Amino acid sequence: MSQSTLQPQVDVRRSAERDATKISWLDSKHSFSFGQKYDPANTHHGLLLVNNDDVVRPGAGFETHPHRDMEIVTWVLQGSLVHQDSTGHSGIIYPGLAQRMSAGRGIMHSEKNDSWRLEGAAHQDPVRFIQMWVVPDENRITPGYEQLEIDNDLLGGGLVPVASGMDVHEGAAAIRIKNKYAALHAARLQAGQSVELPEAPFLHLFVARGSVTLEGAGALAEGDAVRFTATGGQRVTATEPAEVLVWEMHATIAG
């Protein structure tokens, strides 16, 4: 998709503007329409349909449920999350571990706070994670799962490819997703460190932790997001220790 057909836009979405689902075991904030929180004007940006900021209390989690035709990337910020699915894959996801599940033609899975199976007060902590969904290149692919430790790669403070289907990241991205027009990057920044955003028709910046300043837009706090259209290259600078997630997208969902 050519940027020349799009109007440049930088759309800041504040944390407090997000819809939320809050029940006894879950505190979830939604950047886009999700579940019963539906807004036809806020269904996606580029190829990204879901950017949920979830906190799950100890001893709880999402019981087994289905997904279809979706690339689901989970990024844990605090605690650890147990994944189990109907293809026989299982794993414990923790900060610095990249994880992707391809729902394909259909998959069942569960996600629970790791402390649900552990004893002792030291393990009775909530788990906080960002779950992101992008559409795949094609439907009804074979379901799949991948995870890989990239914690050491984040120590340098630059943008690190977390998940990508783009050829340019072949051999560099931690995990592969089934969309050749999308890539997720992450950066852990100390105060004063900065990164430059990529150039793409569509970008989504999410401040997962801490606070930063965005060149041309000002201060961003934890939970704030920015949707870029036909622009990029701005610098993001941490004003305190921070963690940011950046989706680079070279296509959008039709309609």
Rank of each mutant, 00 (worst) to 15 (best):
M132A: 06
M132K: 07
M132Y: 06
M132N: 00
W133D: 01
W133A: 04
W133F: 01
W133R: 03
V134T: 03
V134D: 05
V134L: 06
V134Y: 04
V135N: 01
V135L: 10
V135F: 06
V135D: 05
V135P: 06
P136G: 00
P136A: 00
P136W: 01
P136Y: 02
P136V: 00
P136I: 06
P136Q: 01
D137W: 10
E138L: 14
E138C: 14
E138A: 15
E138T: 13
N139G: 00
N139D: 04
I141V: 13
I141P: 13
I141C: 12
T142F: 12
T142E: 15
P143N: 10
P143Q: 09
P143F: 03
G144C: 05
G144R: 03
Y145G: 11
Y145T: 12
E146S: 14
E146C: 14
E146Q: 14
E146R: 13
Q147A: 10
Q147R: 09
Q147T: 08
L148C: 11
E149Q: 12
E149I: 01
I150L: 15
D151C: 08
D151T: 11
N152W: 02
N152I: 01
N152L: 02
D153W: 06
D153H: 12
D153S: 10
L154M: 15
L154Q: 08
L155P: 08
G156P: 00
G156F: 08
G156I: 04
G156K: 07
G157I: 02
G157V: 02
G157T: 07
L159Y: 07
L159M: 11
L159P: 07
P161D: 01
P161G: 08
P161I: 05
V162N: 06
V162F: 07
A163R: 00
A163N: 03
A163H: 04
S164G: 11
G165I: 08
M166G: 12
V168M: 15
H169E: 15
H169A: 14
H169L: 15
E170Y: 10
E170S: 15
G171P: 05
A172N: 11
A173N: 09
A173R: 09
A173L: 11
A174D: 01
A174L: 12
I175A: 02
I175S: 05
I175V: 15
R176Q: 14
I177E: 00
I177G: 06
I177T: 00
I177Y: 00
I177M: 04
K178E: 03
N179A: 07
N179F: 10
N179S: 05
K180F: 08
K180P: 13
K180T: 14
K180C: 05
Y181M: 13
Y181N: 15
A182H: 04
A182Y: 04
A182W: 09
A182L: 12
A182F: 06
A182K: 09
A183M: 03
L184P: 06
L184V: 07
L184H: 01
L184W: 03
L184G: 05
H185F: 10
H185D: 05
H185V: 11
H185I: 11
A186S: 13
A186Q: 13
A186N: 12
A186K: 11
A187F: 07
